[in-house]
Design a protein around this nucleic acid. Sequence first.
DNA 1: TGAGACATACTCAAATTTGAATATCCATTG
DNA 2: CAATGGATATTCAAATTTGAGTATGTCTCA
Lengths: 215, 215
Amino acid sequence: MSMRLLILGLLMERERHPYEIRQTIKLRNWNECFKLRDGSLYYAVDQLRQDGLIEAAEVVAVPGDNRPDKTIYRITESGREAFLLLLEEQFKMTSFPQHPLFLAMPFVRHGHTDKIEALVLKQLEDCEMRIARMKAILELKGDLIPRGSSLMIEGFIRFGETEKTWLEQLLAEARSGKLFESHQMTPEQIEAYVVGLKEFEKSYPPDTEKNDKDS
Amino acid sequence: MSMRLLILGLLMERERHPYEIRQTIKLRNWNECFKLRDGSLYYAVDQLRQDGLIEAAEVVAVPGDNRPDKTIYRITESGREAFLLLLEEQFKMTSFPQHPLFLAMPFVRHGHTDKIEALVLKQLEDCEMRIARMKAILELKGDLIPRGSSLMIEGFIRFGETEKTWLEQLLAEARSGKLFESHQMTPEQIEAYVVGLKEFEKSYPPDTEKNDKDS
DNA sequence: TGAGACATACTCAAATTTGAATATCCATTG
DNA sequence: CAATGGATATTCAAATTTGAGTATGTCTCA
């Protein structure tokens, strides 16, 4: 999965040991743009080594230090090839918009109105924080990092701002109560709807199914 | 995880058997807004049953049909409580913008320019398709479905449009070559950057870590 | 000076997801 | 009429992720 690309990508720059990869990810604030756990990192490193895509370049043991030895890895020639493939795979992934609240929306009408309203407000505040933080990061290092990286941050900010306006609308409708109106379709409506759907599927065929390898 | 919320949410409406849940998800086009696999569905149903949040209401065997019996499930009282909790959990999830290309951006400079350009173009086309499709869906049933559901689709479209403009910029910079410019920081820049980061962390503290339970 | 927090550097079992496979029935089409 | 493809309805092993735990060193603040 994507952890592999990340590791290989960092090893394209230079040799590193796993914990250093972890640190680099944090230092560059990537952990705020895609989620990554330690466990997956070490697991993926192990897989990559088994697959011969990376190899131990050196094992460093600090004398008088009982902590585990650090194994420094370098990318191999087949690793470089795999990297290019993974990069393309990543570009091929279907990327429809995802937001955890999407999943909640169809059921929100079953929830407690006050609670939901408060939670949406919280989301909105968090969202504003994230935007401010990323704008500061962009300001700080936008010109120093590769263009791809700054484009990533710009994308993050743009999506964040879209999220913000959406959450504002959500909040407004939670407050007005519109969000919680319950709502029953008449059998005729259901009928019309099903017929309409059939027509619709013809003119807007769904995505070609087997799209997203990898996550 | 979120599959649980989805199942409980649908069983809040009425009893269903697993495959019917799957069908409903497709019929309502939810599968285009969040990714879900059959395997996870059956697994989650099993967990929910073990946890006593749902129970078998009826087992239907079609006579003269050797296909597996359908077990129809209903939500239990503790299931309803769990549903409300899960709904709130979902609202508490931190939801930073995610896009598969974010992960690729920092490494895009190592890729083949022509290949990347073609893939970005493909992404853009897919994105436009998705938007058109969702607009058609909204048109078709926007007024017939609960407000939460149509807000979800509206959100999907808005995010899609943001994605579109971002991809357009990406494409332009891939074509101009700006995206691939390589780029070395001077040691002084690195120094300044690290110092700047420290300052920055003080004024914009990162998210409170233990944020997203559940996925 | 000692207690607690934070950083280093992982490890591992358990939970979950994935992808493919299974098996049957029904409809179409050459 | 046989083959092909799709819908029904699930199962399962293997891959992966998660979350918590481990163990040591270092800094800091009272």
